[in-house]
Design a protein around this nucleic acid. Structure first.
Length: 851
RNA sequence: GCCCGGGUGGCGGAAUGGCAGACGCGGCGGACUCAAAAUCCGCUGUCCGUGAGGGCGUGUGGGUUCGAGUCCCACCCCGGGCACCA
């Protein structure tokens, strides 16, 4: 059946030139790489090893532009470093537990596993169509029983070591997703990062991982990482180390005499980072939930205090910490007094909701002169303000937090014979002296506090890794024996619209036998935060076949740490902190090698894709489908679009991606490089032109340098400029030599192989009898070829460019100056006068100074 | 408020203290074509000038230097993080 003639007419008219058709090329090469295992590496590979890893994705179906961007950078690096002779481990897997699948199950009644497996296949196919190459033999999925087994095994190791524990805690409850959230998953405005619901406070028993044990290491080891400064700063802030002093303030009467109605030794223990300002303390503040409140409140204050405490307890932590404007409703007097050890005087004890029981000692000394919040509080409650640090001249603020000499100490009225004298000292020195003074008298000690809290991993969800614990009435909390792992969620579950996890009511799952006493036990129905799964997957990739342990140590030694980790910056304090903690914990437990203290040596965070100025996302419905572009322009064009649009770490507006220009460029490369498809070129058999050879070497040097500093957009721009020049030269009447041309084109194909792998592979194979471009060595520029014979000498007069002269590159200063002074322009501008001075930087620039 | 980034044509952006605007997009003009698409060629910071050419130009104001987009100081604006965690 003859097809109606449409565009076929055109094809026949210039049948000499086979047009670049990505659809016929790309699937073939994708299959080739897969079938030949081109990017599979074994753990005993003799080459130098490199581990290049992109954050494994949540399987959300077909890839979106964010995936494309992420995987293009990772894939380029894998291919580039492989051509450089390294054995590159480039695995891929799926972070396949999580709420979207469970929400879909609630909506449709289908089991999340089915849903998830389908989405994984879709995503895998998308990633392949982008041209991403991975060692798929190593694929891991969080919901795979083998993976669940080892996640649970790791949890039990942590449990045995005391790093996993069950604790009662006031937690963030998401009423929409019906689960608790980690602090990291709550946004500063008090809403849930995922669901957007207003987070409530609930008191629940939950599982925690003791990440705070590692606070100091997590902070210190940041120094050795080659990570974006932004991410390091965010982690540092999140850990929130602060050095300070704790000391006790005995509860007394307002005149300093002992108080009879409180137990002996009753004292407020305060934490402060400004012990140097202790002489300015005019009151102290307890958290409303502080256990001492009950004992010290005086009868006439009891009623308002109880009301205040009740109100604070129902306020979220975020709201409590938001101190803005008038503070008069935020505090409450207790009627009690406590003695300041520095002055010997009693100061009133208040409650304030912005003081948290969970940080420091739950009590602070208040120094309104040097702390703005204390100033605001003192003003609201009519409390005295004393200045202890000399203000600089012209200071017009309220509290002064800067440096300066200390004043007003010791208080002469205190009559202490061993008073602490800080007068005249700067803040740092005064802190030291005051700390020593306290320590020497046994009144307090230096301490370090962290803002970081333990990692709450309990989730009241179904589609997650079950926590392998049993609750026995007799024995209490009992770990599931290792030989009974994995604990898997049942298949016969029904998802109800209430959203409650089916695990909480599934008797077959809940009922178990206590392995210790043989009595009945109830299975833990909470599952783990999915960040637990992603906190060790990079280790499993080293040895996904291991059946006796999560991974064998020697396999991890072969590959870890990850040389280059690539992902989104939104994981700065979540995944990246948890993975660092888990690596350290596993190292300490002897599961991972002892010397492996950090998982990711280098981190790269690529920018987001935006459309119309907002983040592209399914919920906003503003997606541009990568598949559509692959179907029309091809994957190589799409990859090039991402690579060339902007520096990779910056956010990208999709409108800025110049796909047409990239497609044009590839068409041009095709016509230039396809043997026999170049009728408009003039190629002769003479020796290679020096200019052309030098240009080719310069291109190699520039592209390599650009790759090494992640300036892909510059690398692509250089290739484009090179093609423009080459095409122009080859089309000129004189043409170029065949040998110089072929060298130029072959080099270009090698340089493009990591960025546009399909077209490079196709053209290389056609030019070289079926050879595979990705198995060639990355070209190296000959330094001797980078030096031009002549160069443009820029001639300036008084710093302004007035002339340009071609000179031999070897010209010395005298020759350059002579050439410059001989310039007609310079002669004219000098008007016969002698230059006042001549500065030369041979052979690039000469500046003639006239005055 | 503090700490990081960043301000360069109509747009995305290049530029070891030495030719600002590479490369791409967009725009304008031309070649090919019956015509269009595709492709190719030329122009494209701004002002003055018919032209050759010249003036002005990298957020603002100072400074260092023979020479500053690049270094220093102050300020303005944008983006991100932290923030009243004692």
């Amino acid at each position: 059946m003859p097809r109606p003639d449409t565009e076929d007419d055109v094809d026949r008219s210039d049948a000499v030139v086979e047009r670049y058709d990505p659809q016929s090329i790309e699937p073939r090469w994708q299959a080739y790489w897969q079938e030949h295992g081109t990017y599979e590496v074994d753990n005993d590979d003799p080459r130098q090893r490199a581990y290049v890893l992109c954050m494994y994705p949540y399987p959300s179906g077909a890839a979106h532009m964010g995936h494309v961007r992420n995987y293009t950078f990772g894939d380029l690096l894998t291919r580039y470093r492989t051509m450089c002779g390294e054995a590159v481990l480039s695995p891929m897997g799926f972070d396949s537990f999580g709420l979207p699948a469970e929400n879909a199950a609630i909506r449709t009644g289908r089991h999340p596993r089915e849903f998830t497996d389908e989405r994984i296949e879709e995503l895998r196919s998308s990633i392949t169509r982008i041209g991403g190459v991975y060692d798929w033999r190593r694929e891991v999925r969080s919901h795979d029983p083998a993976y669940i087994h080892w996640t649970q095994w790791i949890f039990l190791q942590l449990f045995e070591a005391g790093l996993a524990y069950r604790g009662f805690a006031t937690v963030n409850w998401d009423p929409v997703d019906q689960t608790v959230l980690a602090n990291e998953q709550v946004l500063p405005d008090g809403t849930a990062e995922r669901s957007g619901a207003v987070v409530e406070q609930r008191d629940l028993e939950q599982w925690f991982l003791r990440i705070t044990d590692y606070a100091e290491q997590l902070l210190d080891d940041l120094d050795g990482l080659e990570w974006p400064e932004r991410v390091v700063v965010q982690q540092r802030n999140w850990i929130g180390r602060s050095e300070g002093v704790e000391f006790e303030m005995p509860i007394v009467e307002s005149d300093g005499s002992p108080r009879s109605d409180v137990p002996d030794g009753a004292a407020v223990r305060v934490f402060t980072t400004r012990v140097d300002t202790s002489f300015g303390m005019t009151f102290c503040v307890l958290a409303p939930e502080h256990p001492l409140v009950e004992q010290i409140v005086t009868p006439e204050h009891r009623a308002p205090v109880e009301a205040f405490v009740a109100r604070s307890r129902s306020t979220s932590e975020v709201d409590r910490l938001a101190v803005e404007g008038d503070l008069s409703g935020r505090g409450c007097a207790t009627g009690a007094w406590a003695r300041n050890p520095f002055t010997g005087r009693a100061v009133p004890v208040y409650l304030a909701d912005y003081v948290l029981g969970s940080y420091g000692t739950g009590a602070v000394m208040a120094v309104p002169g040097e702390d703005q919040r204390d100033w605001d509080f003192a003003t609201a409650f009519g409390i005295e303000i004393i200045t202890t640090v000399q203000r600089p001249d012209g200071f017009e603020g309220q509290a002064y937090t800067g440096d300066g000499p200390h004043v007003h100490s010791p208080d002469p009225s205190a009559g202490l014979d061993d008073g602490c004298d800080l007068n005249g000292l700067d803040v740092a020195t005064a802190k030291q002296v005051a700390t020593e003074w306290l320590v020497d008298r046994g009144l307090g000690e230096a301490v370090v506090n962290y803002r970081l809290r333990d990692w709450l991993i309990s989730r009241q969800r179904f589609w997650g890794c079950p926590i392998p614990i049993l609750h026995c009435d007799t024995c209490g909390i009992v770990p599931v024996p290792l030989d009974q792992l994995p604990v898997l969620a049942p298949d016969d579950v029904e998802f109800t619209p209430t959203g409650q996890s089916p695990l909480q009511s599934h008797q077959g799952f809940l009922n178990a036998t206590c392995p210790t006493c043989g009595g009945p036990a109830r299975r833990e129905s909470d599952t783990m935060d999915t960040f637990v799964d992603s906190s060790w997957y990079f280790l499993r990739f080293c040895d996904p076949w291991s059946a006796q342990a999560p991974f064998r140590r020697e396999a991890v030694e072969a590959w870890m740490p990850v040389d280059q980790y690539i992902g989104g910056a939104e994981h700065a304090v979540l995944h990246l902190m948890y993975a660092r903690f888990m690596t350290k914990a596993l190292s300490d437990l002897g599961v991972a090698p002892p010397e492996l203290r950090e998982p990711f040596h280098r981190l790269f965070t690529q920018g987001m894709i935006r459309l119309d100025g907002t983040k592209m996302s399914k919920s906003k419905g503003n997606l541009v489908a990568p598949e559509q572009i692959i179907d029309t322009l091809g994957a190589d064009t799409l990859r090039l679009g991402h690579l060339s649009v902007k520096p990779p770490e910056e956010d990208v507006d999709w409108e800025a991606v110049g796909l047409e220009g990239c497609a044009r460029f590839l068409h041009r490369v095709w016509r230039l490089a396809l043997p026999g498809a170049t009728p408009d070129l003039t190629l002769h058999d003479g020796p290679a032109e020096d200019d052309l050879t030098r240009g080719t070497h310069r291109l190699v040097a520039e592209v390599t340098a650009a790759f090494d500093r992640w300036s892909y957009h510059v690398a692509i721009a250089r290739c484009m400029a090179f093609v423009n020049d080459l095409q122009r030269a080859a089309r000129s009447p004189d043409g170029v030599s065949r040998s110089g041309f072929d060298h130029a084109v072959d080099t270009l194909l090698l340089l493009l192989a990591p960025a546009a792998p399909h077209i490079a592979a196709e053209l290389w194979a056609r030019r070289h009898g079926g050879d595979h471009v990705h198995e060639q060595s990355w070209p190296v520029a000959d330094p001797a070829m980078l030096v031009e014979e002549t160069t443009t000498l820029v001639v300036q007069v008084d710093g302004k460019v007035r002339d340009r002269i071609e000179v031999p590159t070897s010209s010395d200063e005298a020759a350059c100056v002579a050439a410059a002074l001989a310039s007609a322009k310079v002669v004219e501008l000098l008007g016969g006068a002698a230059p006042a001075r001549v500065v030369a930087r041979p052979p690039k620039v000469v500046n003639v100074v006239t005055s």
